[in-house]
Design a binder for these strands. Structure first.
Lengths: 206, 206
DNA sequence: GTCTATATTTGGATAGAC
DNA sequence: GTCTATCCAAATATAGAC
């Protein structure tokens, strides 16, 4: 316990080196795809040899895990909790903004999207700490829907489904373009109209 | 030209061997993931050594390509052209059936889905012949929507987006379960209601 | 904390005998 | 057409010197 009291200069340097390595790792993945992460090249990019990386990360998978945690932390930052009025039109607009921002966040870095939201790295299993960030993220989406009166778990599942569907198609079939991005407003109209009618039970009917 | 007149016994045997290899390749991928395809193990599975595979396929990527073509051929078979009545309710039911069948086809073999509909194998680029099968598949979806009066390209893009979104979420977050499969009918209600209102211009407006 | 050297594994592909 | 023998090229990870 006493060890963490004084944030030594040495510790700060280590943290900076770690951050540099992760930056280089992102850069390398963006260029060659998520699976292309390579310790020799990564070492070279930060001016060291591959074995030296093991001073900072105990394995390649731990690097992926740190990237995973960074990505979800960024996602949470991109989706602040809604703090506007609680009137229905305001909340609905808040949701529209959040979803639009979330999709922009995803498309801004397809490799990050792949790491965070698809299961594509063979041996990679996120640590518990990282998974907590992921759950927190999903929960933020849930809270948004609750503000609209959408408490049903199905409402959230359908929402994640239409959002990731749109992002996936955009990335897979029109990378860098806007063929699906253009459909965001239609998608939101479609989803909100349906979800509110289906799960918001205006009076007491099922 | 004259060479293809007589389908020799030798040729038939070659075709059977090819088919055996591909079956084993699917099996191997289903077990270890799409990227796990390995020529030594594949050879062993069909009772030969790795180099012998090169008699039948000129490279590993050519095996993926053959699997890709097989997969899309199966997809086309799973989605026969609609041949029922042309009344609107009948056509709409036909679409619902087709989509439901298509989703079942996708979920029946997640590895196949990954190969056909996601970009996940590093160096793999489908051949032109294989791509034609992929386009033919998409076109079948387009034809279905046209029967409903949905000619807008956006209607097709939104449809592929909601369908793949549902499949992706099911595979990624509840493999083998039905958490998203249960939402198929809701998803169809949502999409069809919206798409018809949005793009079917009942009178001459917009 | 970083290096050199190396172990270890893996896996695609080719040459040439049979 | 299939084999054995090999080549070649990654790439992760460890040992031990400095």
């Amino acid at each position: 316990m006493t060890t963490s009291v004084a944030p030594t200069r040495r510790v700060l340097i280590r943290q900076r080196t770690r951050a540099e390595i992760l930056d280089a790792a992102w850069e390398q993945c963006r260029r060659g795809g998520l699976a292309s992460l390579n310790l020799r090249a990564l070492g070279a990019a930060v001016g060291m040899k591959a074995p030296s990386l093991y001073t900072h990360f105990s394995s390649k998978m731990e690097i992926y895990d740190a990237m995973f945690a960074q990505g979800y932390t960024a996602a949470l930052a991109a989706l602040p909790l809604y703090a506007g009025e609680r009137t229905k039109p305001a909340v609905e607009q808040g949701i529209r903004d959040s979803v639009t921002r979330f999709i922009a966040f995803c498309l801004a870095d397809p490799v990050r999207y792949q790491l965070l939201f698809q299961r594509t790295i063979p041996g990679f299993v996120p640590s518990e700490a990282s998974m907590r960030l992921a759950y927190e993220n999903l929960d933020r989406g849930r809270q948004l829907l609750v503000l609209l009166g959408l408490h049903a778990p199905e409402a959230l599942d359908l929402a994640t489904s239409v959002i990731t569907g749109l992002v996936d198609q955009q990335i897979s079939n029109d990378p860098g373009g806007d063929r699906w991005v253009r459909l965001i407003d239609d998608m939101l109209d479609m989803y909100l109209t349906f979800a509110i009618r289906r799960w918001c039970a205006p009076a007491r009917r099922s």
